[in-house]
Design a protein around this nucleic acid. Structure first.
Lengths: 133, 133
DNA sequence: TGAAAAACCGACTAAATTTATCGGAAATAA
DNA sequence: TTATTTCCGATAAATTTAGTCGGTTTTTCA
C-alpha cells in the first residue's frame, strides 16, 4: 500500500498551481521549482487534464491552471485519477477476476470496510484545505 | 495505493487459521483450500512467523497456528508485516531520502494526516472481528 | 529405526508495473 | 515567423512483485 511517485508528484504540482492562484504556470516552471522530471510531469498533467482537474493553454505564455476553485477539488479525485484503482484489492476491482471464495470471503468484507473508511477521510479534504494549513 | 497479492493471500490464510481454532494447519491444506501457490505461501508464513504472528511445528503432523488469540491480533500489524512500508510516501519513510521541499512541504502534512486516519481505523480491527461478522 | 510429512532457507526466474525518456506535431502569443 | 508551449505515442530503464526450485532439517508414527 504505497503511494506512487506519480501521485506524489501530481499532488505537489497541484498544490503549486493552487498557490499560484489564477496565474497560468508552464510545466517548465513547476518542474524546476518542484524538482520533478519535466517529461514525466507532462504525462501526469495529461491525465489530470483528461479528468478535468486542470486546463491548459497552448503556445507561448501558455501553461496549466486549475479547472476550478481549489475548494471544489477533492483530494479523493486527485488520488483516484493518478493512482488508478484505488485501495485496489483484486476482488473489489478486477472486472473479470473471479475469486474462488467470493460468497463467503471474509477478507473481502474487510477490504470494503477499509476502503469506505479511507474514502470518507479523503472526501472531506480539498486542495484548498492543504494550502491553508 | 494497491494492496499486494501477498497481503491478500496472507490475510486470507490468517483468517483460515483463526477459523480453525486451536487446530494446527499445514500449509498444504491452506494452500489448497484458499487456492494460494504453496511455495509463495511458505514465504509469506516465514515473514508472519518472524514477526510473531504465527508459530510453527515442524515434522509430520506439523503446521502453523496463531501465536495468540485472534482478539489480540491487530490487522494493522498484519498489513505492516506483509505490505512493508505502510502508506509509504518517500518523505515519510525513506531513511536517507531528502525531499527538496522538506520544511515547507504541504503535501507531506497531508500524507501524515491520511496515514493517521488509516492507522486509527486499522488499530480498531482485530482478526477476531473479521471472522465474527 | 526408517520413511513420510512438514517447516525452513536461499537463490533464482518471470512477470508486471512504474518511472522516465525521446522525437516530433500542433497551437499560439508576441 | 520564431520561440514557446502543450500534446501524443512509442519505447526504454528500473524497480517491485510474484512465483519457482532444490535441497536441508525436524518430527511423528508405523
Amino acid at each position: 500500500m504505497k503511494i506512487s511517485t506519480k501521485t506524489q508528484y501530481g499532488l505537489r504540482a497541484l498544490i503549486y498551481l493552487a498557490r499560484a492562484g489564477k496565474k497560468i504556470c508552464p510545466l517548465k516552471e513547476i518542474s524546476k521549482k518542484e524538482n520533478i522530471p519535466f517529461d514525466y510531469l507532462e504525462k501526469i498533467f495529461s491525465k489530470l487534464q483528461k479528468q478535468g482537474i486542470v486546463k491548459a493553454r497552448r503556445g507561448k505564455n501558455g501553461g496549466y491552471f486549475l479547472s476550478c476553485s481549489p475548494k471544489k477539488i477533492k483530494i479523493k479525485k486527485v488520488i483516484e485519477v493518478l493512482e488508478g484503482n484505488w485501495i485496489a484489492v483484486k476482488c473489489l476491482t478486477k472486472g473479470n477476476f473471479v475469486c474462488p471464495q467470493e460468497k463467503k470471503c471474509l477478507a473481502k468484507n474487510f477490504w470494503q470496510t477499509l476502503k469506505k473508511s479511507i474514502d470518507k477521510t479523503l472526501n472531506k479534504i480539498t486542495l484548498a484545505d492543504l494550502i491553508t494549513k
